[in-house]
Design a binder for these strands. Structure first.
Lengths: 114, 114
DNA sequence: CCGTATCCGGGCAGATACTG
DNA sequence: CAGTATCTGCCCGGATACGG
């Protein structure tokens, strides 16, 4: 089964890039609780600038993970929500955390042996 | 359930970074078939330079995904294999492919509507 | 055969200022 | 309120040369 059959390798990168982005997991986490307005997201994640927050949201929208709804009112109101597809990503993020926990555990183990 | 409880958000990044790297999924894929020597890996993935291949392998080793065994012979012989932990990553990569396929499908859909 | 040492370029994210 | 426009800095991955 060579690489070209597409099961692994390069094909992985597409999916990986969809959730790779400094604030994307965090944004998905917040939207998993409930739909949020732009300003709400910014208050929930104050470490990120509005510029970058916008960029990450646009990329998530392009990946069909997040939906963006504009209410033409004054003042303007924009709501971000997870799509049905986006909600399916939650278990994947939990698995990522498990990977990380394994790494942390191994680090602590190594420190004890010094 | 605030962000600080560690279920999502920043904690995801640790696990994500363990498999994020231009050649890491590809390397894992190759090692999933069988243990390989350095030169074999390089022949299987000729697009990557030895320098970068070394770097990625070192990082995978640091993450306990890959094990490195040196046989002190002449000429030198070094074997890379997936750890038990590394083998558990396969299903995660398959899920990444599913994410990518969803994106590709959506792209094609959009093109038809132009 | 299996690397290390150095240098370099592009892309992502951050800071800051401005706008419908 | 919810963005855009512009500039900047840093880190990863790549190219090349050298070493045990």
């Amino acid at each position: 089964m060579p690489y070209q059959d597409g099961k692994f390798g390069c094909p992985v990168d597409v999916g990986l890039s969809m959730i790779s982005g400094k604030w994307k997991p965090r944004i998905i986490y917040e939207l998993l609780q409930q739909t949020r307005r732009f300003g709400e997201l910014h208050r929930l994640i104050p470490e990120v600038s509005r510029h970058v927050l916008t960029t990450q949201l646009r990329e998530l929208e392009e990946s069909d993970i997040v939906s963006r709804t504009v209410y033409p009112s004054s003042p303007p109101k924009v709501e971000y929500a997870l799509t049905e597809f986006g909600k399916r990503i939650a278990p994947i993020l939990e698995q990522m955390i498990e990977l990380g926990e394994h790494y942390i555990a191994k680090q602590n183990q190594g420190e004890r042996n010094e």
